[in-house]
Design a protein around this nucleic acid. Structure first.
Length: 828
RNA sequence: GCCUGGGUGGUGGAAUAGGUAGACACAAGGGACUUAAAAUCCCUUGGGGCUUGCCCCCGUGCGGGUUCGAUUCCCGCCCCAGGCACCA
């Protein structure tokens, strides 16, 4: 054993050992309980960053801990290897995206190995290989057969910088999630996955995921945005046709005085045709269409509209209602048409004021005698209340009336109760090269034809010239797009769009159970053994992207018969960001800390320890160079503790249950308390910071006891027990140094294969315990009493304490509260 | 506007079932060892007070409340972060 702690050599030594002996490779074992631990796999962008280090360190601690506790732990790693940065980098550097990607993977794999993570590398996946994406193409075909993948023309989000469309989830505040370019609307033919088919299950199951953070579930619930209401028909004045409206407030129907349509509503051209204002209407539509998504301050945008010239009939009052086009009505939600109730909807109120439209009050507050006068309203009253001026519904409360009015109209076929969702189908077409080809063919005669299963995979051609302008080369790469129609054999053209890369990450976790299986996407027995993922760990930024898509995909795969689980991830841990000097690490801020430099300077164990110690996992981690220094100092101190006592530790006897002196009993108690605390902190809360703090306390106490070395025969046994507890308890966090110390102390079996220690309840008990004495709720004294003292005895001892007497001021206790073995409060 | 979190020393953070607020660490200051430095070790470190005591008072965003006792529970505010947002 070296005197000085030098991480470099011991880390290489153990990493080589783990690699050579393939200790982390696992297979299905029906006799062992499985534990599938997964961290979100990285995009191979070049090098790993501190966020990855933190994410994977957290996962590694759990994996190693569970392994030592006897579980059959699956802990795989791979690469989310399709994506735009590869194309951009390749154009810039004059290389090929594949080359760039695989080079990065090699570099990053090496970085991960240097951090000592316990991955089963035999299961490594790269999603850009045909062995992986061919199955995704198969899923696409099966989904197409079931109508879960379909093609339609619609307005889609277009990012001009990325040169491709984006799903709704990938637009954040009107800008592209990747490059912050304002997103515009473009009408295009696109492939969609019918995620809305699973909307109810996706929503309901959020209640069946107790192992997920509340806020992630709320975000998904918000995103799905279920609202219950009614669909109501407003017949056109002409007697031909009607306008359908979705409303959550059918109780206010008697107050509906006009209708507002979205600019894109298909009836608008008909309504204004030949009317005096036609030109003005068409002009308004043009302007409205241009300013959608990227209007960030939607709130500030003034409500504007124009009269179409057409009228509807209110189905309950029979009154004529003018039909307007309004800039705040969205075609994408509901039916693209809104019944306007200015007295009870703020937007309609503002609109009515502006264009001088009638305002009819039909709801009064629950306690009020009379409803307010319409002319005196300063704003809409959107609260539920009691109906007024609503024919036979007058006097009903809003909630009852909402249903009653809908049902009354339903008898005439003019309304029904319905549910609306904010969630839209997932647009997966991307006009990019570096992605999985969509296995479809366009034939002049046969139309859209799926590629037969036997012809899969549709391989992404690697011999392409990338285009300077960044566009996809596939539409101009004849060997790829030129094909024969699978149906009629005529010349045909392949789909040249590729799939959203979120499709790959929606099922990779299942593929890890059988990465090399080539008879199908998933080997039934293996998937059944390993799925679902027991613990998933990753960043919060995927709350409604990857995590929602994966939940959807698992349901699809289940219904296609490939999987038997309903949900992919039993438990989810979302770790915070790594920040420095108050900002997220980024090149532009110049506050990036390079993991390679840190590992080189301090070793992987120090870097890992710091990531775990500086904050609990769900909080942001403030990177501090001095903090890292501190972690290194602690590991050096631990090294010294063993080195300075190596011979005595090696030859120390085992503890045989003798009576101990008080300081030895205290050390032994601390040892077992620490084992208990570390076990519970990891198992129940993933609070590694407090677990490490507990180990530090044990190290400090061990040093103290060694300082005042007595001549008790069990001295060395107790010290040895303490040091071993430190090394074992710390080993999931700092595995290299702990293996090394374990070996140095004379153990033949490696620490990793040593069962996680249990604590001795007997050792936790002290003979004397500290009782806190309060008088009138204020701390006045601390007393040491025998551990078996009864409440009455504690009370008696406390009352006889001179300090207590002083604060009682000679008065008699009015009440005495005793918390057993902890505290007594004397009230006078 | 709505929905989640969160606000504790100079800093990161502890306090897990209402029971000693500030564990553990960083930083700072003082000291020991050394010719000197590094490393290491020891002491002090929320604020205030004096009678310097293992003392007293105050203190967990603010104001109330419940309780023998509140960082923890309840009510009303303020501030910060994240999500959703003209969603009918």
């Amino acid at each position: 054993m070296e005197q000085k702690y030098s991480p470099k050599s011991i880390e290489t030594k153990w990493q080589k050992y783990w690699d050579d002996s393939r200790v982390f490779e696992v297979r299905e074992d029906p006799d062992k309980e499985k534990y599938y631990l997964l961290e979100m796999f990285p995009y191979p962008s070049g090098r790993i960053h501190m966020g990855h280090v933190r994410n994977y360190t957290i996962g590694d601690v759990v994996a190693r801990f569970m392994r030592m506790r006897g579980y059959n732990v699956l802990h795989p790693m791979g690469w989310d290897a399709f994506g735009m940065p590869a194309e951009n980098a390749a154009i810039k550097a004059g290389t090929h995206p594949a080359r760039w990607t695989f080079d990065n993977i090699d570099y990053m794999r090496n970085q991960l190995k240097q951090l000592g993570f316990s991955y089963d590398w035999s299961r490594e996946i790269a999603t850009c290989t045909p062995q992986y994406y061919r199955w995704e193409q198969l899923f696409f075909l099966k989904m197409y057969e079931k109508g879960l993948a379909y093609r339609k023309s619609s307005y889609v989000n277009w990012c001009s910088t990325c040169g491709t469309v984006l799903a709704n989830e990938q637009v954040e505040n009107g800008v592209c999630w990747r490059c912050d370019t304002p997103v515009v609307q473009k009408e295009m033919e696109q492939w969609f996955f019918r995620i809305t088919h699973y909307v109810d299950e996706l929503l309901e199951n959020t209640l069946k995921l107790p192992g997920w953070p509340e806020r992630v579930l709320t975000m998904q619930q918000n995103w799905i945005g279920r609202s219950t209401g009614s669909r109501v028909c407003f017949p056109l004045e002409t007697g031909e046709g009607n306008i359908q409206v979705f409303t959550t407030r059918a109780d206010t129907l008697f107050g509906a005085t006009f209708l507002s349509l979205a600019a894109e509503h298909p009836l608008v051209p008909d309504l204004c045709r030949g009317k005096p204002g036609e030109a003005a209407v068409l002009d308004f539509i043009q302007k409205a269409k241009q300013s959608k998504r990227n209007e960030r301050e939607a709130d500030l945008l003034e409500k504007e509209g124009v009269f179409t010239g057409g009228y509807c009939i209110n189905p309950v009052t029979g009154k004529k209602m003018p039909v307007y086009v309004a800039n705040f009505v969205l075609m994408a939600y509901g039916t693209g048409a809104v019944m306007a109730v200015p007295a009870h909807d703020q937007r309609d109120f503002e609109f009515a004021k502006k264009y001088d439209l009638p305002i009819d009050v039909v709801i009064k507050p629950a306690g009020a005698q009379h409803p307010p006068r319409a002319s005196e309203l300063a704003g809409a009253d959107e609260e539920y209340g009691i109906l007024v001026d609503s024919a036979e519904f007058t006097g009903m409360d809003s909630e009852t009336a909402r249903v009653a009015i809908t049902e009354a109209l339903a008898k005439k076929g003019l309304a029904e109760l319905t549910v609306q969702h904010r969630l839209r189908d997932w647009g997966i077409s991307r006009q990019r090269y570096w992605g999985a080809p969509i296995p479809m063919v366009y034939c002049e005669k046969c139309g859209v034809v799926p590629v037969p299963e036997k012809d899969l995979p549709v391989e992404l051609p690697l011999d392409v010239e990338l285009l300077e302008n960044g566009g996809s080369p596939l539409p101009v790469h004849k060997p790829f797009y030129s094909t024969r129609c699978p149906q009629c054999g005529a010349e045909a053209r392949r789909e040249t769009d590729t799939m959203d890369t979120f499709v790959e990450s929606s099922w990779y976790f299942a593929r890890y159970s059988c990465p090399d299986f080539d008879k199908g996407p998933l080997a039934r027995q293996k998937v059944k053994y390993w799925m679902p993922v027991d613990q998933y760990i990753g960043g919060i930024e995927h709350a409604v992207l990857h995590l929602l898509y994966s939940r959807f995909f698992v349901k699809v795969l289940r219904d296609l018969g490939y999987l038997e689980v309903d949900e992919p991830f039993q438990n989810l841990l979302t770790q915070g960001m790594v920040i420095k000097d108050g900002f997220k690490m980024s090149k532009s801020k110049g506050n990036v800390v390079d993991p390679d430099v840190m590992i080189k300077t301090y070793g992987a164990d120090t870097v890992r320890l710091f990531c775990l110690f500086a904050a609990p996992p769900e909080k942001d981690l403030d990177w501090s160079d001095q903090g890292v220094e501190g972690s290194f100092r602690f590991l050096s101190r631990l090294w010294r503790l063993v080195w300075e006592n190596i011979d005595t530790l090696k030859n120390a006897p085992s503890f045989d249950g003798d009576d101990l002196s008080s300081d030895l009993a205290a050390l032994r108690r601390k040892t077992h308390q620490t084992i208990k605390k570390v076990t519970e902190d990891i198992r129940e809360r993933f609070h590694f910071n407090t677990a490490i703090a507990a180990v530090m306390e044990l190290v400090n106490l061990t040093y103290q006891v060694l300082e005042n070395r007595g001549d008790h025969p069990m001295f060395l046994a107790v010290v040895r027990e303490a040091v071993e507890a430190v090394v074992v308890a710390l080993s999931p966090m700092a595995p290299h140094i702990c293996e090394e110390l374990w070996q140095a102390m004379g153990h033949e079996k490696i620490l990793l294969d040593t069962p996680w220690p249990t604590w001795d309840e007997g050792a936790l008990k002290a003979e004397e315990i500290l009782i806190v004495v309060q008088v009138n709720g204020k701390l006045r004294s601390r007393l040491s009493v025998p551990a078996d003292a009864t409440d009455a005895q504690i009370e008696q001892i406390s009352l006889s304490d001179p300090r207590v007497g002083e604060f009682m001021g000679g008065k008699q206790p009015r009440k005495v509260v005793v918390v057993p073995k902890k505290l007594i409060n004397i009230v006078v």
